[in-house]
Design a protein around this nucleic acid. Sequence first.
DNA 1: GCCGACATGCTTCCATACAAGATCGGCATT
DNA 2: AATGCCGATCTTGTATGGAAGCATGTCGGC
Lengths: 225, 225
Amino acid sequence: MAAAALENTKETIAMRVVDALRDDIITMALKPGDVISESDIAGRYGVSRQPVREAFIRLAQQGLLLIRPKRATVVKKISPLGVRQSRFIRESIEVEIIRRVAGQPSDDAADVLTKLIADQEAASDAGDSRRFHTLDELFHRTLARLAGVEYAWQLIDDHKMQLDRVRYLTLGVSSTQRAIAEHKQIVEAVARADAAAAETAMRAHLARAELLLNQTISDFPDYFE
Amino acid sequence: MAAAALENTKETIAMRVVDALRDDIITMALKPGDVISESDIAGRYGVSRQPVREAFIRLAQQGLLLIRPKRATVVKKISPLGVRQSRFIRESIEVEIIRRVAGQPSDDAADVLTKLIADQEAASDAGDSRRFHTLDELFHRTLARLAGVEYAWQLIDDHKMQLDRVRYLTLGVSSTQRAIAEHKQIVEAVARADAAAAETAMRAHLARAELLLNQTISDFPDYFE
DNA sequence: GCCGACATGCTTCCATACAAGATCGGCATT
DNA sequence: AATGCCGATCTTGTATGGAAGCATGTCGGC
C-alpha cells in the first residue's frame, strides 16, 4: 500500500478517504480483485469505519469498488465489455465534438492545439509518460471546450475512470510518437475546416485504444473479468 | 409527500430509501429547491438516520440532491446547462447508434420497431401518457440493443435522470402524435438502410426537446437554476 | 473415506450517541 | 434605530456498539 496519511486538503474525512482510495485504485496500488474491508482501511488511515463506509459507497457508484452485501468489498475487476462500451460513448461524443470544431473554425483554435502538441513532443522527448498522459487528456478536453461542451466532458468523467485504469497499465507500452502524429492529423483537418477528414482522423486515433486493450488483457489477465 | 411505507423488494433499507426518494424526485413529489434532512426522512420512513444518509450520498452523486455540509440537503434545481449538455451526450450517442443500425440492417429490426410504434399509438389513443413515455424509452433502448451497445445505454442512465425530470413536467404538453410520426420516419430510413436520412430524422426528433425545455423553463421558473 | 450439521470468525448493515459547524433570533450596546 | 454579539437549535459529520448474513473449517455420523 501507499501512504498511511491523508492529504489535509478536502473538507471531510470521507472525501479524503475517497481521494486516497481512488488514487490507489487507478495507480494499481490496489489491484483489481483485492479484497478490502471497512475496518481494514479505517485502521490503516486511523479513522473510524463510518467515513470509510461512505467512501466505499461513492467509489462503488463510480464503478471502482464492488460491495457484496454482508460478504465483502473488492476492487472491481476491469470489464472488457464495460471498457469497450465506454469507448463507444467516448467515440460518439468526440466525433460530434470534432465535427463542431471543424465546422465552425476559429482563428486561434488551431494555434492552441498546435501549442499543446508541441508540449506533448517535449514531454515525449523527456520520457515523461505521466506528463504526456496529462497533456493528452488536456488535448481532448480542449477540443470539448472549443466545441462549447466542456461541461459534458465532466459528466462522462466517471466512465472515463474505467479507461484510465487500462491506460495506466499501458503507460510504458503505448507509442507517444504515434499519438502525436495522430493529433497532428486531427489539427490539420480542423485547420482546413475539413470535418469529414477530422472525423476520420479522430476515429483512427481512438481505434488504437482497442489494440492496447487487447494487449493489456493478455498482459494482465488477472485484472480483467 | 407520497407513501410512508417502503417497498419491501430490495435487499437493504438504504436501497429502498434510494428508490423511494428517487421516485419522489422524478415525479416532482419532492420539488427542486425543497429542503430535506436526514432525520426528517428517517422519521417519515421509520428508520434510523444512517441508511437515509447513505441514500442521500447516492442520490447526490446522481445529481438529484445537493448536500451542503453542516447546512442542509436540498433537492437540486434543474440546471438548463446540464440538461443541454446531457442532451448533447445523448444526441451524440443516438446518432452513432442509428448509423450503425441503418448501416447493418437486420430483417426483423424494422419489424420490432414498427410493432413498438403500434403500441405507442395505442397508448396515445388511450391517453395514457405515462405508458407512452415508457414505450418511448423502450423504443430508444431497443435501437441501442440492435446496435449492440445496450450496456452503454445503462451507463448513461444517470445522466438521463436530469432529462427525465424535465420530461415529467412536459407530460401533458408534448405532442405524442408528433413523436410517433418522427419515430416512423426513423424506422422508414432504417428499413431503407439510409443512414444519412436516419441520422437527420433522429436529430430532428431530439431537437424538439430543446423547444420543450424552453417552454418548461418559462412554465416552472422556480424549478430551474 | 465421505458428507453434512454446526460453531466460529469474518463481513457489511443498522441504530444510537456525540461532536462540530452553520443559521437565525433575541438582546445588549452604541 | 442600527448594529454586533451570542446562544439556542438546527444541520451534517464521526465514532462506536451490536445485529444479521455469509464463508469456512471442524467435528461427528455414516
